[in-house]
Design a binder for these strands. Structure first.
Lengths: 192, 192
DNA sequence: GAGCGCATGTAAAGGGTTACATGATTCT
DNA sequence: AGAATCATGTAACCCTTTACATGCGCTC
């Protein structure tokens, strides 16, 4: 489970409320690890019970800000240093590609064009954001620099996918004669 | 939920058992949409109850092969054509990057080097597989061509991430003086 | 005082993983 | 005969999403 450690990581930057954390997930973080507020609030309760975070202050509108404890800081660091990275992705976009052969050629063309646009726009937006970091508009703290690195990955992945969508449209791989006929081929298609 | 439609998509290629499908997920598909056998078996039961698939045959070792029905084929196509793509990813690799500032510099260096190696190797393996497709070793069916497109995305993403990991190691963004000190900065780091 | 955004939560359902369990067939 | 692999399933638990619910504080 990464959410637990993600929350600890965010709280390592400074105290924050569940609402604050949910906002950060809905922005940058949510594009690589979605999380909605009910999950965040309940995870915070568990983290507090485990002594990894504690209530720092209460504000207006019964706002509760949490602060990370020493035990919590140790735990994030342990996660980062010792727990193996899970390299499996979950990307519906690519999952769908395996089934493109079931789509009508016009639908597929439109789909790929829309994907290309989407990824190119996302990449451009992230690139613009990265540029503001490079101009120093967010300071030069360690956190900012780490975010810059994460941002770079986002830019490159979105650029790569935009390029892929363009390639897929241009390649004749999918435009051959038998494509888009009503029925699938019989048989599995395993090689000799 | 994508698994339901993924199973339908695979069964559209031809009849298969739960075991077969689990194997395909553990190979190529699992890298973009993980699924273990208990989930697959129980989903197959639900798909059969919904009339989207039916038992085609029973074989040795009480093997049960399923075949997609016309309703099932219609349903995958509807999914591909009408249901909006969910562009959110789930990538622990990138999620961690937001918290790199909490890592010891040596640990981070080693981590990034390992990531670069991993992605470069994965990209190379996928590229090799894609080449066998381009040499026609798997035929030229629609399915093969769709898989070729999915494969290309895998190659490009892994290449992009290998490049990113290399860039992250080379950039001085993370190697500045204050990195790796025991305590995080105080305060949130929001801009002016 | 009406409406909006802040802020927190609960409940229920759905999706996904891990552990456990079993039996059949093939290979050596 | 024993080991490996094929093949299916159940149970328990955990993670995640969606819907429902509530109240406070600020602004117009």
């Amino acid at each position: 489970m990464s959410l637990r450690h993600g929350l600890l990581g965010l709280l390592a930057e400074g105290p924050a409320s569940g609402y604050d954390l949910a906002r950060r997930f809905s922005q940058a973080l949510g594009s690589v690890w979605p999380a909605q507020h009910p999950q965040i609030y309940s995870e915070l309760v568990r983290l507090e019970a485990a002594g990894l975070i504690e209530v720092e202050s209460t504000g207006p509108r019964r706002r509760k800000a949490y602060r990370i404890t020493d035990a919590g800081l140790t735990e994030v660091r342990r996660w980062l240093a010792e727990v193996d990275v899970d390299h499996t992705f979950r990307m519906e976009v690519l999952f769908r590609a395996y089934f493109y052969w079931l789509m009508e050629p016009e639908d597929l063309k439109a789909h790929l064009a829309a994907e290309q646009r989407f990824f190119a726009e996302t990449a451009a937006a992230l690139r613009g954001y990265a540029d503001t970091k490079d101009r120093g508009e967010w300071g030069t703290s360690k956190q900012t620099r780490a975010m810059r690195i994460a941002l770079e990955a986002g830019v490159r992945i979105n650029e790569a996918l935009a390029g892929w969508a363009q390639w897929a449209q241009e390649t004749d791989v999918m435009t051959a004669e038998d494509f888009g006929t009503a029925k699938p081929d019989d048989g599995g298609g395993e090689p000799a």
